[in-house]
């Protein structure tokens, strides 16, 4: 290995680190006191005080928000995977006008931006709540229900394409002859084959739902129900900004994302690529 190559290697690393410097600035300033922060924002902290983290956790209700975010994201994703894969498989395996129409509707509605739906959606959910007496607004269940609806189109689209191109129909026919019911056939034979695309669907939806702000901000009004983006928003709105505490709060919100990234990096990059190109 020659010198110029080593220099190039180091330059690339340095470049990437400079690109991530906002993350560095966030983390180092979360430990500094006010005076230290204004002396030099780029410097490492002189002492590691966790005080601002303790304050931020308390003011943001961080653990509650983390719990809400985890519960809402995981539950939504489980339902999206189960319902979308079933629907997509059935639509791909029935060749009639109705299934074509349903599939086309799923795809076409992917074009609708959330802003076009948000106001009427809130009105309609309010109507459901008052007429059927099912609380759709200001409940975790209602939010999960809406997440499923909004993300179904993309998931059905991805599963449909995968079933058409990869799942061998002969295998399904063999299982049917062996007396497998449709439900057993799907869950025992088809669903395991769908695994690669399931990983993609999970990744894309975890990222989208975890980071979603606008939908939960419209549906959840109760402080105890806030997700991480919501509690961050109110944290910044309610207090005059003390930057060191604010940076501690932001660092807290980034930690779960980094953990997820470390464990699923390969899948994330692959999933993003697949989701984008289709």
């Amino acid at each position: 290995m020659n010198i110029s190559k080593i220099i190039k290697e180091l330059l690339l690393l340095l470049f990437s680190l400079v690109f991530l410097s906002p993350v560095y600035i966030m983390v180092v300033n979360s430990f500094k006191n006010r005076q230290e922060l204004y002396e030099n924002v780029m410097a490492l902290p002189e002492q590691f005080s966790l005080q601002y983290y303790i304050d931020a956790m308390d003011k943001m209700n961080f653990l509650t928000a983390l719990g809400n975010s985890l519960f809402i994201t995981i539950t939504s994703v489980i339902f999206i995977v189960a319902l979308s894969s079933m629907t997509a498989w059935m639509l791909a395996r029935t060749d009639n006008k109705l299934s074509k129409f349903i599939f086309m509707t799923f795809i076409a509605t992917m074009l609708i931006p959330f802003q076009t739906l948000m106001m009427p959606l809130m009105q309609f959910m309010d109507t459901i709540s008052s007429t059927l007496n099912i609380q759709m607004l200001n409940t975790r269940g209602g939010l999960i229900y809406m997440h499923i609806g909004f993300n179904a189109g993309m998931a059905v689209f991805l599963y449909h394409g995968f079933v058409r191109s990869t799942v061998p129909i002969s295998l399904e026919e063999a299982a049917t002859i062996d007396g497998c019911s449709k439900l057993g056939l799907f869950w025992k034979i088809v669903f395991p084959i769908l695994k690669p695309i399931t990983v993609t669907v999970i990744i894309l939806n975890v990222i989208a739902i975890w980071n979603d702000f606008l939908l939960p901000s419209l549906t959840l009004t109760d402080t105890a129900l806030r997700t991480i983006p919501l509690s961050t928003f109110y944290f910044f709105g309610e207090f005059t900004i003390q930057w060191n505490m604010a940076m501690a709060g932001l660092t807290l919100t980034v930690i779960p994302v980094v953990i997820f990234y470390v464990f699923a990096q390969k899948h994330i990059i692959k999933g993003i690529g697949e989701g984008a190109v289709k």
């Binding site: 993350v23 928003f233 994302v257 994330i268 993003i272």
Partner: peptide
């Protein structure tokens, strides 16, 4: 590292 900012939500 270069991809990482994309995972942090827009709000944060």
């Amino acid at each position: 590292m270069l991809f990482m900012p994309n995972l942090i939500g827009g709000l944060i």
